[in-house]
């Protein structure tokens, strides 16, 4: 694993830890609340006689128990969703060539990047009708992750990332547009070169655009980029719907 990949993974894991700590905080607190509520109910019911005020207390306790159980359900769903998205992105069976719903891959990727995006970036989905696409999903998801992370880092402060998908003859297109800084014309030719970065050493970018292009080209597709300085960039991935027999395998 390269230095850049490691640092992008570290950033992702820190974000995930943060995302998990919120529902975990709720669950941990609720467990304590349930314990206290049950103790209090036992105390009340320990007496032979239960009077009117105690009935009211029991009602309040039962209401609280119901509320925290509902919160726990939401919290567990959030954690399960995060775990599923991690699994979806790195599942070993996704390393094989198979028919894939690209929207699923995009959604898993967005969920993993929620911490990076939320509060700062609005994600607009303009999904078209896509057929299932024959590809190596783990590789294609890595490309999505890199391009969306790039888009996010190109935007300083609040902005918008638009993800557009559509079919073009026997290929599908996934466009990722940002309202970020844009790329200077003289850099535009070099962005797919190994080691090219404008981000300094701190923000590791995972695979880098060069490997993104390698992945897409090994699928018989291509990456195009359009950019205006000060307005933003659009990266367009084009993938064939079906892989021809004997297509290159990486």
């Amino acid at each position: 694993m390269s230095e850049a990949e490691r640092s992008s993974l570290q950033m992702l894991m820190a974000g995930l830890a943060h995302e998990v700590n919120t529902p975990l905080g709720a669950i941990r607190s609720n467990r304590d609340v349930l314990q206290r509520a049950v103790n209090r109910l036992s105390d009340i019911l320990a007496d032979e006689v239960v009077d009117e005020t105690e009935i009211d207390q029991i009602r309040d306790l039962v209401k609280t128990i119901g509320e925290v159980i509902d919160v726990d359900q939401v919290a567990v769903d959030v954690i399960s969703g995060l775990v599923a998205s991690v699994r979806d992105c790195w599942r070993t069976d996704l390393a094989t060539l198979r028919p894939v719903d690209l929207h699923e891959g995009l959604e898993s990727t967005l969920l993993l990047l929620r911490h990076e995006l939320k509060h700062r970036i609005e994600v607009v989905r303009e999904y078209g009708e896509l057929p299932v696409v024959e590809c190596y999903p783990s590789q294609v998801n890595q490309v999505f992750m890199n391009l969306i992370l790039n888009a996010s880092q190109a935007i300083s402060g609040p902005g918008t990332i638009t993800i557009r998908t559509y079919r073009r003859d026997d290929r599908v297109a996934v466009e990722i547009s940002d309202t970020g800084a844009g790329i200077a014309p003289e850099d535009l030719e070099r962005i797919f070169d190994a080691g090219f970065t404008t981000k300094g050493t701190k923000s590791g970018m995972g695979l880098g655009l060069r490997i993104c292009r390698e992945i897409i080209e090994s699928h018989g597709g291509g990456i195009e980029v359009e950019s205006t300085v000060g307005k933003g960039s659009t990266f367009r991935i084009l993938l064939p719907i079906e892989q021809r027999a004997g297509a290159s395998r990486t």
């Binding site: 919120t22 529902p23 905080g25 709720a26 607190s29 609720n30 304590d32 609340v33 206290r36 509520a37 209090r40 306790l61 609280t64 509320e67 925290v68 509902d70 919160v71 939401v74 919290a75 959030v78």
Partner: peptide
């Protein structure tokens, strides 16, 4: 996150 505000409120109201 409403799950946090509800959890904190439930606890503080109880304790």
């Amino acid at each position: 996150e409403e799950m946090v505000t509800t959890a904190l409120r439930s606890f503080l109201q109880l304790a």
